[in-house]
Design a protein around this nucleic acid. Structure first.
Length: 623
RNA sequence: GUCCGUGUAGCUCAAUUGGAUAGAGCGUCGGCCUCCGAAGCCGAAGGUUGCAGGUUCGAGUCCUGCCACGGACGCCA
């Protein structure tokens, strides 16, 4: 094995060099396979411990029955030659931590190597596409906060994969088929509504009316019986029941005709979808989400595949009949998965299985991600296990498929209960976003009113655009900046606040960097490639933070946790602020220092803008 | 009843997947603008990580049992 040369070190990430050296040393000392060793190299918890720490000695010592500290020292000795090119002499501390400090020229070279349009993000070598199930709006229903989460989290993850070079297939699994839609369709036709002039509010009203008309008050009837209610009340409820049954029957007829492909009904049904999608697309545009009607793969898309899906399960002997229904049973749980009703109809599990098959077998996706409400956890567990049993967890070319549900929690009001209006109705997404835009705009304008503010000379239109970016960014950031599975409280005051881990704070950091270039009359794109110098601690901390961007993105891609990107951006913005406080840029006393700092500023600016873009958040140059 | 989540500072949340003294923001208290955007920075106070055991060099993280809250549980989606 040859020793690592200086040019090799410059060509790659110093962490990779360190890992390789330690892996090789561990293989030598313990007589292990180098490939099987995880060197556990992490950024140091505390600057006093250096820049990085390697935590491999403790677990390996346990395995080999050695003292961790002794092993750590042996590893350091064995890796000394390889490490010498990259770090200062390592120190062994505590129970066996190996503390590492990068050599200044190596740090500079590392920053240099990410100063390009990749910013340290390594391409994902996998060629197969990733399918993401997101949004999932219901036709004829107003979008609400649940759709907001699915949509922006799904889009954020999609952007991360795309940034790493993967092909992403966004799948909007619309609720556009089945009895509820038939009920609305029947309701609209019975009321003689002109479907060519349909508005979303008409649809929404029809949906509610249809639900109401179809709701058989059987519970009320039982209660009346139990409480010995008078005959008058019972008769009233029975009448209500009868008319409800009638409405349901009419809706069922409509559904049957729709399913049989009745041309007139299908044409009308399409009008409902078009109307819904017009509103949805408007919302998606406001949200800066990369999705249009071409990504629609609603329930109706699978309607002709359902029978074959069920046949496949019957054919393979994976399903069994139970009380007339067809179910799939699992060894480790009591509940079965119903895939066909006793009347021969299909269920949502059938549609989901059809979607799994389509995505893996027809589209060839090797990773299928469902960004759906946490309440559907059990459902997806069952569906995925059923899909695995029948072999849809391998693409036709033999690539194993990862089926994964990304569950997210509920959006609560300040009363800690699911978000509702004062009158008890679901809060519509539109009203929520309107509030966000309004708040963002008023905050931006309030600050622009100050004659000293850099935005003071801007037009009302320009300020509106910034306010929109700030308001929408605040909502999206708040939604993605904590662990997805937890419920969170929708508190506009907190999310629009320009301090703490919020969207506006990150946007502010970006705008402030930008203003250095504006004030200095410097075009960042035309910066000379002068040497980078990290002599001040704040410069060094900023450089180290910048170097973590690539690994952060990789981590988000593997864990499917966007809040890690938010935390990273917050830390970077924080580290930059400390740098900004301590290190004059335009006013630096030496020209070479000024150039070096300008390059650090520019790189920070680009990383923040890139990170925000991956979250689908705009980074206004001024705000 | 069965299964699945969640529980960390007064409040809202982190914790690099088992690593060093559990970290941020808000709020409270105290510093820093004749100086590149103070929407900022620096510092202080604030903790039995729901409770009780266990595993080991080492536990917020893993195991067992409780407690609290939420959710899902056959022909809705």
């Amino acid at each position: 094995m040859s020793q690592t040369t200086a040019s090799q070190v410059r060509a790659e990430d110093p962490v990779a060099s360190i890992e390789r050296a330690l892996r090789r040393a561990a293989a030598e000392v313990l007589n292990l396979e180098a490939g099987s060793i995880d060197p556990h190299v992490r950024p140091a918890q505390n600057p006093q411990f250096g820049d990085f720490q390697a935590n491999l000695a403790m677990p390996l010592a346990k395995q080999a029955g050695l003292k961790p500290r002794d092993l750590a020292q042996q590893l350091v000795d064995a890796a000394a030659d390889d490490l010498a090119a990259v770090v200062e002499p390592p120190e062994v501390a505590g129970p066996g931590f190996i503390n590492l400090r990068l050599k200044p020229d190596v740090l500079a070279a590392a920053v240099e190597s990410i100063d390009n349009n990749r910013l340290g993000i390594e391409p994902d070598p996998q060629a197969s596409p990733i399918a993401i199930d997101l949004c999932g709006v219901n036709v004829a229903k107003q979008m609400h906060v649940g759709h907001l989460r699915s949509t922006i989290i799904g889009d954020g993850l999609a952007r991360v994969f795309e940034r790493r070079g993967r092909t992403v297939l966004r799948q909007n699994h619309l609720g556009d088929w089945g009895l509820p839609i038939a009920m609305v369709l029947h309701q609209l036709r019975a009321a003689g509504v002109d479907l060519d002039r349909l508005e979303l509010t008409d649809l929404d009203r029809a949906y509610r009316d249809a639900q109401l008309a179809g709701k058989a008050d059987s519970k009320g009837l039982e209660a009346a019986d139990r409480l010995h209610a008078g005959p008058h009340r019972v008769a009233e409820l029975e009448a209500q029941n009868a008319s409800a049954a009638e409405a349901m029957e009419a809706a069922r007829m409509t559904l049957v005709k729709l399913q049989q492909g009745d041309p007139e009904l299908v044409a009308d049904w399409q009008k409902l979808i078009d109307c819904t999608m017009r509103a949805v697309e408007e919302m998606l545009e406001l949200l800066n989400v990369h999705m249009t009607a071409e990504h629609n793969r609603g329930e109706s898309f699978y309607r002709d595949r359902l029978a074959d899906v069920v046949d496949a399960f019957v054919r393979e002997g994976i399903s069994e009949e139970d009380e007339g229904a067809l179910v799939v049973r699992f060894d480790d749980r009591d509940r079965p998965l119903l895939i066909r009703k006793s009347d021969g109809g299909f269920l949502y599990a059938t549609t989901d299985l059809a979607a799994v098959r389509y995505r893996t077998q027809e589209l060839g996706a090797s990773r299928v991600i469902y960004v759906v409400d946490a309440r559907q956890r059990d459902h997806f567990r069952d569906v995925f296990d059923a899909a695995r049993r029948i072999g849809w967890d391998v693409t036709p070319d033999g690539t194993p498929v990862e089926l994964v549900h990304v569950p997210f929690g509920a959006v609560l009001g300040t009363d800690k209960r699911p978000l509702k209006t004062r009158s008890g109705e679901n809060v519509t997404l539109m009203s929520l976003l309107n509030e966000a835009v309004e708040r963002g705009t008023s905050e931006v304008k309030r600050r622009a009113a100050d004659p000293e503010a850099p935005t003071h000379d801007m037009t009302a239109d320009e300020l509106d655009a910034i306010g929109r970016a700030v308001g929408i960014g605040a909502v999206k950031y708040a939604d993605m900046s904590n662990d997805l599975v937890r419920d969170y409280v929708f508190d506009m005051d907190r999310m629009i606040a320009f301090e703490g881990n919020t969207g506006p704070y990150i946007q502010y950091a970006h705008a402030r960097i930008n203003s250095i270039f504006q004030r200095g009359g410097i075009d960042p794109a035309a910066l000379a490639d002068g040497p980078l110098m990290m002599t001040e601690p704040a410069e060094k901390q900023l450089a180290l933070a910048l170097l973590r961007y690539g690994a952060t993105i990789e981590q988000v891609a593997s864990t499917l946790e966007p809040h890690r990107l938010c935390s990273y951006l917050y830390e970077l913005a924080n580290t930059y602020s400390a740098f900004y406080q301590q290190c004059p840029v335009l006013k630096a006393e030496r020209e070479d220092v000024r150039m070096s700092r300008l390059r650090l500023c520019d790189l920070t600016r680009r990383v923040i803008a890139d990170g925000l873009d991956l979250l689908g958040i705009d980074a206004p140059p001024r705000m």
